[in-house]
């Protein structure tokens, strides 16, 4: 019973970090309809900025975190401007965007191999990892609770932004029909920049927590593949889907690790992907809108 509860908390915590990554990825997908493989790069950029600032300016996590979010957001906007916008302006074929994003992912990873070196780095101990006891039932770490709470706060803020602001409304409209959103007087390029900034900043939050969980290295972005899987399970382009898919994935991983074997984690994850694609390719919340003529 104790182990189960503990693994559920750990699973939700891991899933919530996936959710931060998957939601940004899904947001970009919903607007531009391509899988942005450079998304993992944004997470790595966020992680290294946080690491760099903590090492140079001391241990103020709020400062380091804030700059890390802003930095990764700006990097995401620049990636879009440099690599995707020139393609968008010439063609509607999203396959070219996909290929460009694979290129950008390799570019970002290798920039960090050159600049920061390929070795594993541990973030200074700014995020508490002390064990916390739940009334004697289960033990989990403060870190797990903190990452869960942070994810809830950031995803809640995103939801508020999308539901309550003018640009949030425009993003929801553009997710359905980007061209028509442009007809409403929305500066489409600015909207896309905003979406990339948000996606980059959320990825940075995920990046910081993942760096604490697993240490930081240039290939850390590869973990985004789990967020892709979560987004597919939840339904590509659907934000609630990305969150639910991520939580399912996190739980599945941790329960497998706790009750079967931690080596089986990835097997279970990718089996779930295959099963989703076989049984319900649109995912849990995938949309198939029928058009009225």
């Amino acid at each position: 019973m104790g182990t189960l509860l503990q693994q559920i908390i750990n699973g939700l915590s891991l899933g919530s970090v996936y959710a931060l990554i998957a939601v940004g990825y899904s947001l970009v997908y919903s607007i531009l309809l391509f899988s942005n493989f450079a998304h993992g790069g944004f997470l790595v950029i966020g992680g290294y900025i946080c690491y760099g600032i903590l090492k140079t300016f001391g241990t103020n996590i709020w400062l380091a975190g804030g700059l890390s979010l802003a930095g990764a957001g700006i990097a995401a906007v620049l990636t879009e401007r440099l690599a995707y916008r020139p393609i968008r302006e010439r063609t509607n074929v999203t396959l070219y965007l996909l290929i460009a994003s694979m290129g950008m992912s390799i570019v970002i990873e290798n920039i960090f191999v050159i600049v920061a070196g390929g070795r594993f780095r541990a973030l200074p101990p700014v995020i508490p990892t002390a064990p916390i006891n739940f009334f004697g039932f289960a033990t989990t770490s403060a870190f797990d609770l903190l990452s869960l709470v942070s994810a809830v706060v950031f995803l809640g803020a995103l939801q508020l932004f999308l539901l309550k602001t003018r640009w949030g409304l425009a993003i929801r409209a553009a997710a359905y029909d980007l061209r028509t959103a442009g007809l409403m007087g929305v500066n489409v390029n600015r909207l896309i920049s905003i979406v990339f900034f948000v996606a980059g900043a959320l990825a940075a939050v995920g990046g910081i927590f993942l760096s604490v969980r697993y240490t930081l290295y240039p290939q850390l972005g590869a973990i985004t593949i789990k967020a892709f899987v979560a987004a597919v399970i939840g339904g590509l382009g659907s934000l609630p889907g990305a969150v639910v898919g991520s939580l399912i994935l996190g739980l599945a991983e941790m329960l497998t690790a706790g009750f079967i074997s931690s080596q089986m984690r990835d097997l279970v994850v990718f089996s779930m992907l295959v099963i989703t694609l076989l049984v319900k390719p649109t995912g849990l919340f995938g949309k198939s809108v029928s058009e009225k003529v």
Partner: peptide
């Protein structure tokens, strides 16, 4: 074709 935003 109207192009209303169906999910809004």
């Amino acid at each position: 074709g109207r192009k209303v935003f169906a999910p809004l």
